[in-house]
């Protein structure tokens, strides 16, 4: 039963947005970015991350993004986001389907998340809200693993991001509250705070710097520092 659910969730996640979008040959800018990061949390201590992201805007109605993270803390993430977009008189409405696999090898668990959300993007603000489900599997994967899968069938995802300048600007600073990013989807009551910015060196190169803060127990009403990450990198736009 769990296997069937897994296959259906994966299949729906992969193909539904493609069906919704009118895929045409792309005419917009592709980009690749590389980031390195330093992180600290109460469980892992200090660690470093290395991220690669590829942004693939197929056309003005559909784009994709693929992300990979490796970490010295011995966890690995691969994710893909598929986004049909609808340009409105003011702003842009989009749907986002996110599939993410996280191999937490250090602790012998694997975490698969599917999140489907609807977003609205304006010059100064991005808002996104949706739902997610998660399948947790103990590692190593064996014949027993299917019976050992733990399903968290319903959770919420959200993202509220504000920019100090229009998003088309050559430099910008943003503040964000969300329970997801390209490398992690947390449970709904575990928000994360982001502060970031970019600067366009020229039409091809953009540099980025961002920080992330995670508190534990916000909805225990007893919040304390849990972890933080600092991330810097460059993006090349073709």
């Amino acid at each position: 039963m769990k296997k069937i659910f897994f296959i259906l969730a994966f299949g729906f996640g992969l193909f539904a947005p493609m069906a919704m979008a009118q895929v045409q040959p792309g005419d917009t800018t592709y980009s690749v970015s590389l980031h390195v990061g330093y992180g600290h949390n109460l469980t892992y201590g200090s660690y470093a991350n290395f991220d690669i992201d590829a942004y693939l805007p197929i056309n003005k109605h559909f784009d994709m993004q693929a992300s990979v993270r490796t970490s010295t803390a011995n966890f690995y993430t691969a994710g893909v986001q598929l986004r049909p977009k609808f340009v409105l008189p003011v702003g842009e409405l989009y749907l986002e389907d996110r599939l993410m696999m996280r191999w937490v090898n250090r602790d012998s668990f694997r975490d698969f998340v599917h999140a489907f959300s609807v977003g609205y993007k304006m010059q100064y603000v991005n808002v996104q809200v949706g739902m997610s489900n998660r399948i947790i599997t103990p590692l190593p994967y064996t014949n027993r693993s299917e019976d050992e899968m733990i399903l968290e069938p319903f959770d919420a995802v959200y993202r509220v991001e504000a920019f100090v300048r229009p998003q088309t600007s050559p430099w910008n600073i943003s503040l964000c509250l969300s329970n997801m990013d390209n490398y992690q989807v947390e449970r709904m009551w575990q928000p994360m705070f982001y502060l970031g910015g970019w600067y366009d060196i020229n039409e091809h190169w953009r540099v980025r710097l961002s920080g992330k803060m995670k508190l534990a127990g916000m909805f225990h009403l007893n919040a304390h520092y849990y972890g933080a990450e600092l991330r810097a990198g460059a993006e090349y736009r073709f």
Partner: peptide
Amino acid sequence: RDGSQGHTSNYTQEETYA
């Protein structure tokens, strides 16, 4: 695993698996 939890948080993901 269900909706019974209301508005209370769990451990972070990192700590859950650890």
